[in-house]
Simulated scan of single mutants.
Amino acid sequence: MSVRVSLVAAARSSALLAERFDDDRPLDHAGWREVQLAAHTLVGLGAAELRYCSPAPRSRATGDALGFAPLLQPALRDCDMGRWRGMTLSEVAAREPAGVDTWLADPSSAPHGGESLLAFISRIGGWLDTRPVRDGALVAVAEPAVVRAALVYAINAPPSAYWNIDVRPLSTVTITGLPGRWSLSIEAVPR
């Protein structure tokens, strides 16, 4: 018996260069448009027995717009970025360059006073490992950072791999398995 977990990255709430740590802004116009254009390819995921979303406004709005009627899961919240919350990476780098360097190099550090990358990955992994273990499917809409953390945990990659995973808005990834034994599932595009 295994569970199939499809993770959908929330639609965007700003342009890439304006992305902010622990962003709580709703979907922007472009994000709504992207959901409308992608809905036909994602709506089938709503047939999952369990449907979740992170508490971020853009995740909730994405799940609702796709017709998932997702349950809010506080464990799927974005990484707690402490005093860097609401700032862009370039703003933080201008104010605390040494802090950014430490944060990028050491996954156990939290120079911002929030959650370390290691703690974030472990929290998301803990959520995965507590999903119902039975043959079935679930879908979760969450911030791209949450999807990256889930992938690092699922394939048991080193925390530094987090920085090498690019998760675009409305992209999906599926992992299957049991608590502590996850596999990345890549599906062929129907021809």
Rank of each mutant, 00 (worst) to 15 (best):
V189Y: 12
A39V: 03
L42I: 01
H112C: 09
V146N: 03
H29K: 13
V139H: 11
N156Y: 00
L184S: 12
E49Q: 13
L27W: 04
T102I: 13
G31E: 01
E91N: 02
G46E: 02
L128K: 06
S116R: 00
S2H: 12
L72I: 15
V100E: 05
W32R: 14
R131G: 01
V5R: 02
V141A: 05
L17S: 13
E96V: 04
D78N: 14
L178K: 13
L71D: 11
A188I: 08
F68G: 07
A18N: 12
E115W: 03
L170V: 09
D135R: 13
S2F: 10
A149E: 10
G114L: 14
G67Q: 07
P57F: 08
R60G: 03
V189C: 04
D64I: 11
R131P: 01
V8E: 08
R58P: 08
A47V: 00
S6L: 00
M1K: 02
V8L: 13
I155Q: 10
A38E: 15
A48L: 06
R33Y: 06
G114Q: 07
L7M: 12
A11L: 06
L45D: 01
A154I: 09
L138Y: 01
R191G: 14
G113H: 09
F120R: 04
R58N: 05
A75V: 03
A10V: 01
G125S: 07
P169L: 02
D28P: 04
P55C: 03
L104H: 09
E19R: 15
W84G: 03
N164Y: 09
L45H: 14
L128W: 10
S109M: 06
S183P: 00
R134M: 05
C79V: 12
Y52K: 05
I124Q: 06
W103Q: 08
P111R: 02
S6P: 01
L170I: 06
L118R: 14
A48P: 03
G136R: 06
T176W: 02
S90Y: 00
H40I: 00
T41V: 01
T176D: 13
V43I: 14
V139N: 05
S2G: 00
L37R: 15
L170D: 08
V8K: 12
G46W: 04
L104F: 10
L42K: 10
A140Y: 01
C79K: 12
C79Q: 15
G82D: 06
S171H: 13
